[in-house]
Lab assay of single mutants.
Amino acid sequence: MSIQHFRVALIPFFAAFCLPVFAHPETLVKVKDAEDQLGARVGYIELDLNSGKILESFRPEERFPMMSTFKVLLCGAVLSRVDAGQEQLGRRIHYSQNDLVEYSPVTEKHLTDGMTVRELCSAAITMSDNTAANLLLTTIGGPKELTAFLHNMGDHVTRLDRWEPELNEAIPNDERDTTMPAAMATTLRKLLTGELLTLASRQQLIDWMEADKVAGPLLRSALPAGWFIADKSGAGERGSRGIIAALGPDGKPSRIVVIYTTGSQATMDERNRQIAEIGASLIKHW
């Protein structure tokens, strides 16, 4: 067993022997301040990774656009098919120029040779490549099948209805392509620590998230040296922004954090800054 596999296998073990965790309302004060600064709703939840206990939450059962955070769930569904012998990570998928959609920095470079399922998941999570996500959605049967996968996990809230990039439209009061912070946090925890996926697939999923290259201005910008984070960000229309993450000190994750916002007129930089400040408060009061 590799060191990384050992780390993920012992996530519940280490967490069980940690000192009790206590909620700190100071972080919620910052979440509410972010709402004021952005002029928009902000949803927040913080779960203990081992027990699933909610440590703090704000608007945990209000719907927010998922945006690209759905790509972690998508690759979880792909990995479940791999575990069941219905898919192979090494299978190569070929596609054409007509398949390319807006923001496809990886797939646009491989029109000639195609990409493997493993490479597509890596591109979808680490670079948020939209064509990679659409190609992977095709392998599982489309958005409705991802929703069905989530329902089978016990998540009857999260739903995907459309493809990239239309799913980022974020129309107010439109339930399409949305989740709730509580539902997303619980589902992410199941994917990373539950028995739904094999140990190898859980490790692969967290490795992809740990290698995320496009979430630097968010929670990662607030992390002290030595902290662990595996995350996936999302951005959408109407001032929408979000991030889902597993993080913790001492090089291992111990909490799940989900943050979503929508309806702001603020710039992307300002949305990023507010999420980073929430992260800084979380870490300060850990």
Rank of each mutant, 00 (worst) to 15 (best):
G242Q: 03
S201V: 03
E195T: 03
I229G: 13
R41S: 11
G76V: 06
G236S: 00
I140A: 01
K109S: 08
D99G: 08
G194I: 08
T126S: 10
T261I: 01
S264T: 08
L28N: 05
L146N: 02
T158P: 12
T193G: 11
V257K: 15
V117M: 11
V101E: 14
M66A: 04
P224N: 11
G226E: 07
E145V: 13
Y95I: 11
T179W: 02
I229D: 12
P143V: 06
E169G: 03
G52F: 10
S104Q: 02
A182G: 08
S221H: 13
M67A: 04
L196W: 06
R202C: 03
G239S: 00
D155Q: 03
R189C: 15
R273Q: 15
Q88S: 11
S128K: 14
L188V: 13
A132L: 05
R59I: 07
N134A: 04
K232V: 15
E145K: 13
I140P: 03
I275A: 10
K213Q: 01
S122Y: 08
S221F: 08
L192Y: 13
A200I: 03
T198E: 10
A77I: 08
K284L: 03
L146V: 08
D155Y: 11
L111A: 09
H285Y: 03
E145M: 09
H285Q: 04
A211C: 14
Y44C: 03
S254F: 12
D99R: 09
L137N: 03
V214A: 15
A211T: 12
L47Y: 03
G114C: 09
D113F: 03
F149M: 10
G114N: 10
H110N: 03
I93F: 01
A211L: 07
R271K: 11
P172F: 04
T158Y: 10
N50W: 07
D129C: 00
R189P: 14
I229E: 08
T27K: 05
E119I: 04
F149T: 07
G279D: 10
R241L: 15
S57G: 02
P25S: 05
L188A: 14
N173Y: 07
I93V: 01
V29G: 07
L205Q: 05
L73M: 07
K109W: 05
A170C: 02
E175L: 06
W208D: 09
Q88M: 01
W163G: 08
I171L: 05
A183H: 03
E169I: 00
E237A: 00
T261Q: 10
A222V: 14
W286D: 05
K30W: 15
L191Q: 11
T193I: 05
L219E: 09
V117P: 06
D174I: 02
T193W: 09
L79W: 05
D177S: 08
M66P: 04
T131G: 11
I244V: 11
A280M: 09
K32H: 07
G242I: 05
N98H: 10
L247G: 08
Y103N: 11
H24R: 05
F64V: 08
L28D: 03
P249L: 10
E164M: 13
V78F: 06
S104R: 04
T267S: 08
G239F: 04
D212Q: 06
L218C: 12
L120G: 04
K71A: 15
A245T: 09
M153W: 09
P25N: 04
L282D: 11
S57C: 00
A123V: 01
L55W: 10
I256N: 08
E166F: 08
E26N: 13
Y260L: 14
T27G: 10
D48K: 11
A34T: 08
E108I: 11
T27Y: 13
G242H: 02
V42M: 13
T198F: 08
A77E: 05
A183D: 15
V29W: 03
V101N: 09
H24V: 09
R159L: 07
S254K: 10
W208I: 10
D155K: 09
A200S: 07
N98C: 15
T261A: 04
D36L: 06
P181K: 05
L136F: 06
G263H: 12
R162T: 01
E62S: 12
M127W: 07
Q97F: 05
A211R: 05
E195S: 03
D48P: 09
S254P: 08
V214H: 15
N173L: 10
R255T: 14
L188T: 13
G236M: 04
Q88H: 10
P253T: 13
I278K: 05
E195A: 00
W286Q: 12
P249R: 07
Q97V: 03
E270N: 13
D33C: 03
A84T: 03
S264K: 00
N152R: 10
I45T: 14
E56T: 14
W208A: 08
L74Q: 00
P249G: 07
F70K: 00
E237T: 00
K190E: 11
L191M: 03
L120H: 03
K71Y: 15
K144Y: 02
N98L: 12
I125V: 13
A132W: 04
N168F: 10
P105T: 03
T147V: 08
K213C: 10
L247C: 08
A185N: 11
L28G: 06
V72E: 00
T69K: 07
R271F: 15
V78E: 06
G154D: 11
A133W: 02
T147C: 07
G90R: 02
I171A: 01
E87F: 12
A200C: 07
H110W: 00
E46D: 02
T193R: 00
I244L: 11
L49S: 00
S128D: 15
S96M: 06
R202M: 02
P253N: 15
A276G: 14
A182C: 08
D269Y: 06
